[in-house]
Design a protein around this nucleic acid. Structure first.
Length: 597
RNA sequence: GUCCCCGUAGCUCAAUUGGAUAGAGCGUCGGCCUCCGAAGCCGAAGGUUGUGGGUUCGAAUCUCGCCGGGGACGCCA
């Protein structure tokens, strides 16, 4: 699979169109799409319709001209013209078999099972801004989507061949830290001696206590305010305590990242940019972008004007001289462009900040820090809602800690697995059940999140995400484990199957499975551009269904006891490749597979 | 007040960014295990895509209005 089938079709059609209509015709790749209904074929060309209009010709006649000029021998069956002028293409079974044949064995030296998919020829450096919790508190459900989507998007980009830096833009600065550090000093003076190893069991509780202290004790409040001044003034002792606090808070974050399979994230908090902030304002002022307005330094950007003419400001320096998040975001963007050398900045941040990012991007463009090729993307995602459609909260109305949510997912998964185990003959050990519960529970949460389209809100529903049926992690993990089990049952090691054993597809369900596999490369190409994990979950679900039909007792084909041996080998190789695509696809969602469940 | 997002089967969600007869899962009804993992497969019923116009060969998708829900709009981040 050194190529995507779609690209081959696009090339052939491109040539055909130029041969039929002249080389000055501009060919649009979007004219070639997979058919949504297999009865039409595998790929459709719908360009005849648009071209016919431009050339004032009959679309069907035009389609016939194009078909006559097509060279698809050995790739497709005879093209068909349908409806108002669609050209339908159906891949030849021999071609499908040959493509699968070219998929190389797993190269264990590589980070991914590439399945023969080449990395992009134009690798980019991408900074993915993700997760970014506030270190003053525990991570909560509000950070789930950014963390999970950010990781998936990062893996997809890496697989496509890009260099990715996952940036954890944590909130480690601000007035609240004065209160927290003062509280730490007054309640745990002994901890200050070994601040490096500070331990705070529950940051949330600590925050609440500190806030209470602040509200009820005027003397303490004064102390807290002084601590803010000390911190911002660079008082070394205060800085040490602050560092210790942040370090401990980050340990809490990384316990969650580890559970979620996130290992390469770079913690670069807001404080990192403090020294750059005055320079940013200075630089942008020199560029004439900054205006004084009501005592504050603001940037007014083209297009950010309400109908009555009021200009909408992007404030980068408050009237008291302090900086705010816009300044920090500008500094961070500049750093990512200038120091890291990013070609693409991706922000995995909730939809409510759409307006902020629109302005930020406009300001970055205007700053001239990068040329027009710089890609700026706000991957805006919707909120997680409770079953009642309202913001997701605990029964008491409080914020749900991410740690608790994940623990509950594992607990619920464990119950389901134990129940299923009780009905089986072969029993798994309790260690195995625990491992399966961990994987299933955490995967279910991730998969459910990623299977929704980014932009819209979704309802968090335990039953739907842990269901064994439908487009869920348990179903996908089961499908994978089942295929692996088939190999064991057949007494073969998939990795040892002879690479030169031909793959032949004949049975309808065999062909359908094979063609679904062949769509994987074009999907990678698509999602690495669009950054849409839900397109991947959708595909993996289809692949699993295609396999289940292929392997169905009644309607499917025989595999383990298929005859002759050449057919058995061919089908076992098909099983192997299916499992590899599933494993790779799930990996790109941040999900590890199980050999058995 | 200005702007942004959403509204699709009883429920939860899709729809390859303007393509053909709008698809899945759950739930309901019905079929398939002496047969490779039934956590599976096959089928039926279920829709005026909130609503009314417009654009065109073609609209859930683009556009304008209305209805309903959510959100953002200068010194929090």
């Amino acid at each position: 699979m050194k190529f995507s089938v779609q690209k081959i079709i696009i090339d052939a059609l491109g040539k055909g169109v130029k041969a039929a209509l002249g080389s000055d015709v501009e060919f649009n790749h979007a004219w070639v799409q997979p058919c949504n209904d297999p009865k039409f074929g595998d790929y459709q060309f719908n360009g005849s319709l648009g071209l016919a209009k431009a050339q004032k010709a009959n679309p069907r006649a035009l389609a016939e001209k194009i078909v006559a000029a097509l060279e698809l021998d050995g790739i497709c069956q005879q093209p068909e013209i349908a409806g108002p002028g669609f050209i339908n293409l159906r891949l030849a079974n021999e071609f499908v078999g040959r493509c699968l044949q070219e998929i190389p064995a797993v190269d264990s030296a590589k980070k991914f099972d590439r399945l023969g998919i080449e990395p992009t020829e134009k690798p980019e450096k991408v900074a993915v801004d993700m997760s970014s919790p506030n270190l003053a508190k525990e991570m909560h459900v509000g950070h789930l989507r950014s963390t999970v989507i950010g990781e998936s998007v990062s893996r997809i980009l890496e697989f496509a061949g890009h260099e990715v830096e996952r940036v954890n833009h944590v909130g480690d600065w601000g007035t609240q830290f004065g209160m927290l550090l003062a509280h730490l000093r007054s309640t745990q003076p002994e901890a200050l001696a070994d601040i490096e190893n500070l331990q705070i069991g529950d940051l949330e509780q600590f925050y609440v206590e500190a806030k209470k202290h602040f509200d009820e004790d005027e003397e303490f409040a004064t102390l807290a305010r002084k601590t803010v001044v000390d911190l911002q003034g660079g008082d070394s002792e205060t800085l040490e305590i602050w560092k210790g606090f942040c370090k401990e808070s980050l340990r809490h974050c990384h316990a969650i990242y580890e559970a979620l399979g996130i290992t390469e994230i770079v913690d670069r908090g807001e404080s990192f940019y403090n020294e750059y902030l005055p320079k940013i304002v200075e630089e942008l002022t020199e560029k004439g972008m900054v205006e004084k307005s009501e005592g504050a330094d603001c940037i007014f950007l083209d297009g950010f004007v309400s109908r009555d003419g009021t200009r909408l400001p992007m404030m980068i320096r408050k009237s008291d001289g302090g900086f705010n998040y816009s300044t920090t975001d500008l500094a961070a963007a500049r750093y990512r462009i200038k120091e890291y050398g990013a070609h693409r900045l991706v922000y995995v941040v909730g939809a409510p900040q759409k307006h902020h990012f629109n302005m930020l991007f406009a300001a970055i463009r205007k700053s001239g820090w990068a040329d027009e090729s710089l890609k700026l993307e706000h991957l805006a995602f919707g909120s997680m809602l409770g079953a009642d459609g309202k913001p997701f909260k605990t029964r008491e109305g409080g914020t749900v800690k991410l740690k608790d949510l994940l623990a509950e997912a594992v607990a619920k998964a464990r119950l389901i697995i134990e129940k299923a185990e009780a009905e089986k003959e072969q029993q798994l050990s309790s260690d195995q059940i625990e491992e399966i519960a961990q994987t299933v529970g955490l995967s279910a949460v991730k998969y459910y999140d990623l299977s929704h389209s980014l932009n819209t809100d979704y309802k968090f529903d335990w039953d739907n995400m842990l269901a064994m049926e439908g487009n869920t992690a348990p179903y996908m993990l089961y499908a994978y484990a089942r295929i692996r089990s088939i190999g064991r049952k057949a007494g073969v090691d998939y990795a040892e199957l002879p690479a030169d054993a031909p793959i032949t597809v004949e049975h309808e369900l065999e062909v359908a499975l094979a063609k679904t596999i062949l769509r994987f490369p074009e999907l990678i190409d698509q999602i690495s551009r669009e950054l849409r994990p839900s397109a991947l979950t959708e595909y993996l679900f289809e692949l699993s269904k295609a396999f289940s039909r292929f392997y169905d007792r009644k309607r499917g084909v025989r595999v383990i006891d298929a005859e002759p041996e050449s057919v058995r080998l061919s089908r076992l190789r098909l099983c192997d490749i299916t499992s590899r695509v599933l494993r790779t696809g799930l990996y790109l969602l941040g999900i590890e597979t199980l050999e058995q469940m």
